[in-house]
């Protein structure tokens, strides 16, 4: 067991005028995750610390936060792999609900706006809609998204313009635009072919660095930009 020092951003809108940092020290194994340290703080030192977590295994994407200045999932980062004190902040660019919990309403509204579901007017076949391996590989990378918002809140274009649809929604749109079974590409492309659509991307690559699923987001955005430019879906 080692002593782990954490510097956590705290903010309770009912009491505090602005966010502030508070230091904590807990005992943890070096192979524990940052999430374990945060739960140790909550369980043993300060029960008022508020954070989101669900599966705690990098699948649900609910514990996205800024750890030592970079967006990560607290459940995927080992304590031995980060320098101390571990600075923990909420995702940047969203309204803070309390401590590390942010309001993701707008984020999910943008997600819904890109119609993240299969659009196909043809009569459903008796069994599944078949697809070749090559056709599936075309969009496989973007199927991995878990909507943790690490990419969108790492994007300077999003910080400066909260109306920007954001990398996460573009990834979701890409997943269907390039799916051979889908017929809704045109409507999604129209939505993305706007000032606040894909053209807001400045190829900064913060989204790619932040993605816990290692999706090449800038490539996905680039492919949509290129298709909008040359109209070859």
């Amino acid at each position: 067991m080692i002593q782990v020092h954490l510097k956590i951003q705290r903010y309770n809108p009912e009491k505090d005028s602005k966010p502030y940092f508070k230091d904590y020290a807990v005992e943890c194994e070096p192979t524990d995750r940052v999430l374990d340290a945060l739960l140790a703080v909550k369980g043993t030192l300060d029960g008022s610390l508020t954070l989101r977590k669900s599966c705690a295994h990098g699948v649900c994407g609910s514990d996205g936060m800024r750890i030592n200045g970079r967006n990560m999932l607290a459940c995927k980062v080992l304590i031995k792999n980060v320098s101390q004190p571990i600075v923990v902040e909420p995702l940047k660019g969203f309204k803070i609900v309390k401590d590390l919990v942010v309001d993701m309403k707008q984020f999910f509204e943008k997600y819904v706006a890109v119609k993240p579901y299969l659009i196909n007017q043809e009569t459903s076949p008796e069994k599944e809609r078949l697809q070749s391996q090559k056709q599936q590989e075309r969009f496989e990378d973007t199927t991995k998204c878990i909507l943790c918002a690490c990419c969108t809140t790492a994007c300077p274009s999003f910080w400066s313009d909260p109306n920007y649809v954001g990398p996460a929604s573009i990834v979701q749109a890409h997943r269907f635009i390039f799916d051979s079974r889908d017929q809704g590409g045109e409507e999604r492309l129209n939505l993305l072919n706007q000032r606040e659509g894909v053209w807001r991307c400045r190829t900064i690559f913060n989204c790619v660095e932040a993605c816990p699923r290692e999706i090449n987001i800038t490539r996905a955005i680039g492919e949509i930009k290129r298709d909008l430019l040359f109209k070859k879906i």
């Binding site: 030592n68 200045g69 970079r70 790492a154 900064i204 913060n206 790619v208």
Partner: peptide, 8 residues
């Protein structure tokens, strides 16, 4: 804290 982006 300033966001610690990389080369990009």
């Amino acid at each position: 804290m300033f966001y610690k982006g990389k080369e990009g």
